[in-house]
Computed example of a mutant assay.
Amino acid sequence: MNILSKFSRAIAFSAGLGAALALSACGELPASEEAYGPSADGVDLRGSTIGGEFELTSNKGEKVKWSDFDGQYRLIYFGFTSCPDICPTDVQRFTMGLSRFEEAHPDLAGKVQPIFVSIDPARDTIEALDQFVNAFHPRLIGLTGSEEEIAAVVAAFGGSATKLPPDETGWYNMQHTTLTYLFAPDGSPLGIIPTDKQAEGVAAELERWVR
């Protein structure tokens, strides 16, 4: 079954990056190479203070720290496995872009670690998270934790996540930031990857950053 057809409900969502970046989740990112650095498509986050150390649980049930990825570039996205459309679309785009980058630059392939952080720990069990990430990329890691742990990580990374009122069946949606961040091997923020530019744009953006 196609992963996108598996999540077919309508979704309400918004995006924000605090006062620093007022971005709409479905709008185009600002595009100025002079203003935002090495890319005409992405957003330069160098010098910002987002990110930081955390410890969460992986889709394999193992404890994982942010510092465990030291030495690797990190692509990180915050979403939830029962997301109807946006999350699987974004994750598919940035992982396909990563795969294209890996094919074109096999010597750099292992330098980029893709990460999916669940904002819905109540529903995203380790099993659900494992099934979700395995549908996209063999190296995609899923992370979850307690509601308090997730809230702290989302806030530290400049995002937002809010549970919406459930419908008559009890199903609820999540309103959340839908940005794909790129961090440097030392854990500092580099930029926002333009998933709206499809896999080709993602791969091109990685080529500008990863060395």
Rank of each mutant, 00 (worst) to 15 (best):
L21D: 08
T89F: 07
I115W: 11
T57P: 09
F101W: 04
R93D: 02
P30R: 06
L17Y: 12
G110I: 07
G142V: 00
Y36P: 05
P166T: 08
F54G: 10
K197H: 09
Y36T: 11
V210C: 08
K197T: 09
D44L: 08
A104F: 04
G170H: 05
I141H: 10
P189C: 02
V64S: 09
S118R: 00
P166L: 03
A25K: 05
L206D: 04
Y181C: 05
Y77D: 00
I76R: 01
Y36G: 12
G27Y: 09
I76M: 10
A156R: 13
L17G: 11
M1A: 14
M1P: 13
F13C: 01
A31Q: 08
K60S: 14
G71C: 08
P121E: 06
A199K: 04
M96P: 00
P114H: 02
A40K: 15
A40V: 06
L129Q: 02
A204S: 06
A203Y: 01
F183P: 09
G159F: 04
K197N: 08
G142T: 02
I3K: 13
G47W: 04
I192P: 12
A152G: 09
G97S: 03
E149N: 13
T177H: 01
A128R: 12
C83H: 00
G52F: 07
G145Q: 11
G110M: 09
G142R: 01
P106C: 06
P84A: 12
N2Q: 13
L45T: 07
A184C: 12
D85C: 02
R211E: 15
M1N: 14
A104E: 08
A104M: 09
K63H: 11
D186T: 04
A128S: 15
G145D: 10
D196M: 14
I119V: 12
T195G: 03
F101S: 03
L21T: 07
V153T: 06
L140G: 00
F132N: 01
P38Q: 01
E148N: 09
S67L: 05
S160K: 14
E149H: 12
T178Q: 01
V43L: 07
A15R: 10
